[in-house]
Design a protein around this nucleic acid. Structure first.
Ligand code: FES
Ligand code: FES
Lengths: 144, 144
DNA sequence: TATAAATAGGATAAATTTGTCCGAAATAAA
DNA sequence: TTTATTTCGGACAAATTTATCCTATTTATA
């Protein structure tokens, strides 16, 4: 469904959010341990999230990655997916036609569109806040 | 969503079905032209579909690929996807945890499961017949 | 039986994704 | 100002997916 990079990015953002609630910045090393991902690759993905204003970074000693506590609730899963995997999952044809076009649909267009729209709504309506709180409460997990 | 191989496989199966209704066997060359895919790669994918009893092949002169006319209605999209991409799309964790486990869910488990279940039902309830008839009637297209 | 036509399948190559490494730039504190 | 720490970013490497090529095998017909 999503690329590995995107999976890591989502989990990283959730972990950073949980720590940001406690005023803590985190390093790629901590993140990689917490979400069970390759550290250097995770660092690369974090750069993309920084560029897309999902997380912010502070260079130098005592630096690290963090998310403004006031923004955690307004950041949606869709922003993260879009920053890393782009918008093909929303707009692309399920059978790989050059474009998903109502006027020239592939055989599964109608059925696919329904699923894709649900997915889009889900991603657009799921905030980092609820995911992070789920982790903090122990209801869900980021690894194993 | 699906791999390129799976996209080609679905389109190939649909095209073979349309021709099988008319008693015609088709070659990888014809198929690749009709679905706009690389010929040799498509031939490889056809082998997988043959092994998984989605299509049947006849070797030698006057041979080619075909689907038993009486089976077209009972072949579901899910069989094709399963034959090529396996079952991770149905059973795997959306965030790449080792397994999707109700007792140890990832943060998006509940929301993901709903989408995935819909997708599964869609694939299991969509037959090659309806897709092929859509193509024959000119309502949908396999390329461009 | 010989021949031509067609799929099967292995080896290989190209492209993309995933992953690693290291030096440059920035920053806080001593 | 110096030093230690940390992200940034480019180059590189490994793994996977996508794609190609060639030979073997099978089969209908002449
Ligand atoms: S044309 Fe294929 S999903 Fe719309
Ligand atoms: S545990 Fe992640 S989708 Fe079920």
């Amino acid at each position: 469904m999503f690329s590995k990079a995107c999976e890591y990015g989502i989990k990283a953002a959730i972990f950073i959010a949980t720590q940001s609630y406690e005023g803590k910045r985190v390093s790629p090393k901590e993140i990689a341990q917490e979400i069970d991902s390759p550290q250097a690759f995770t660092a690369k993905i974090l750069q993309a999230l920084v560029k897309n204003d999902v997380v912010s970074s502070v260079k130098g000693a005592y630096g690290g990655f963090e998310i403004d506590r006031n923004q955690i609730a307004s950041i949606k899963l869709s922003q993260i997916v879009n920053a890393i995997d782009g918008d093909t999952i929303y707009n692309g044809c399920g059978l790989g036609l050059h474009a998903c076009d109502e006027a020239h649909p592939c055989p599964v267009h109608d059925k696919f569109k329904a699923i894709r729209t649900d997915l889009k709504h889900m991603l657009e309506n799921t905030s980092l806040e609820e995911l992070a709180l789920n982790i903090k409460s122990g209801e869900s997990f980021l690894k194993i």
